[in-house]
């Protein structure tokens, strides 16, 4: 559908690249008085994707929220991507989303049709996820924003945190990287329309299929690769789990066009913030080029799941994932703790 507004022109930052750095967040919240509760299985201290609260022996509540400025010009696609991205945090905990609330900010002069299209995108994805949008909150502001606050459920014994990886696990990534770089290139009108179409399709793809397959296997740990990039999220998983993570750069799926665009400096600012945050914990082989490292620090909007699963089960899980998500790959493994948290290796 055509629209007169170039939505991305109204956006200051690109998608999850707009996210405030992890290091900044930790220091902002440092020292606040909070209550402890044994039923809070996952809270802020764990740097995880969503909070999880045990209701009884059978049921735990999963809560999360995510919103960002327009990442594409088509308002319907933007709504779909924002909703898929918000819902993803529930899937990353192994849960199923049930209720959602719209979070929206719109410039006063924005036409009703555009606003409606953004919302239609959100409703469509919530429907596909089996969740109900039961309300929300909309305000006026200069920069459009859209996302969801999502509530889901998970069995309290089957919560998949980002801190459960064990030595001997294989790591699987379900979506290719490079989305942040490609969207930055799109803003500079240096990305091919066919490439943009490909990444839009990827961003609006729910992590539902990946979650539904993953929970059939003895998965130890899971997170979604979003604003903090592959290396930021791997660093958090390694730190939280007390393991070292080894990533084989040759096996990591990414959109090939991103390599040349990174070399040309079309890299979102978030990638540099991610490098600042995670670099101290990452040992990168000299064989991994600067451009390839840029892709591994590139913030992803509505990225895939990073799954840690025992080596014995990894083959079967990957094979089943590939039926639905052909780009999924085994990208590395977890080992006993070493000097660095993440080792980026290359043949």
């Amino acid at each position: 559908m055509e629209t007169d507004v170039r939505l991305t022109k109204l956006a200051g930052c690109a998608g999850c690249g707009a996210k405030v750095g992890a290091g900044t967040l930790v220091s902002l919240l440092n020292g606040f008085r909070t209550r402890t509760d044994p039923n809070l299985i996952v809270g802020f201290d764990k740097s995880d994707d969503a909070s999880v609260y045990r209701l009884n022996d059978e049921l735990a509540l999963v809560q999360t929220t995510d919103f960002f400025p327009p990442v594409v010009d088509d308002p319907f696609v933007y709504g779909q991507i924002a909703a898929a991205n918000a819902l993803s945090d529930v899937y990353a905990m192994g849960g199923e989303p049930k209720l959602a609330l719209n979070l929206m900010c719109i410039p006063e002069q924005m036409d009703a049709h555009t606003v409606q299209e953004i919302l239609r995108g959100g409703y469509e994805k919530a429907y596909e996820a089996g969740a109900i949008i039961s309300g929300g909150h909309t305000i006026h502001g200069a920069e459009p924003l859209y996302g969801l606050a999502v509530t889901g459920f998970v069995h309290p014994d089957r919560v998949l945190t980002n801190s459960g990886a064990r030595p001997g696990d294989d790591l699987i990534l379900t979506k290719p990287l490079g989305v942040g770089i490609l969207m930055t290139a799109a803003k500079a009108e240096m990305a091919e329309p066919s490439v943009l179409e490909r990444i839009c399709l990827q961003m609006k793809t729910l992590n539902k299929a990946a979650r539904d397959i993953m929970v059939k296997y003895p998965v130890h740990s899971c997170t979604d690769v979003t604003g903090f990039a592959l290396l930021g999220h791997s660093y958090e998983m390694a730190q939280g789990s007390g393991v070292s993570i080894h990533i084989d750069a040759d096996r990591v799926p990414f959109h090939p066009e991103a390599l040349e665009l990174a070399r040309m400096g079309l890299i979102p600012a978030g990638a540099y913030r991610n490098r600042d945050y995670a670099e101290k914990g990452v040992r990168a082989s000299e064989k991994v080029s600067r451009e390839l490292q840029d892709i591994f620090y590139d913030p992803q909007t509505s990225g895939g799941l990073l799954i840690a699963v025992p080596h014995e089960s990894a083959g079967a899980l990957l094979e089943e994932l590939k039926d639905r998500l052909p780009c999924a790959e085994q990208i590395g493994w977890a080992d006993t703790p070493e000097e660095y948290s993440v080792y980026l290796e290359k043949e």
């Binding site: 990174a262 070399r263 040309m264 400096g265 079309l266 890299i267 979102p268 600012a269 990638a271 540099y272």
Partner: peptide
């Protein structure tokens, strides 16, 4: 006047 722009313009110029 920011690090990301400094890095990106450097990369672009070198390319």
């Amino acid at each position: 006047d920011n690090v990301a722009s400094r890095e990106n313009v450097t990369r672009f110029a070198e390319s």
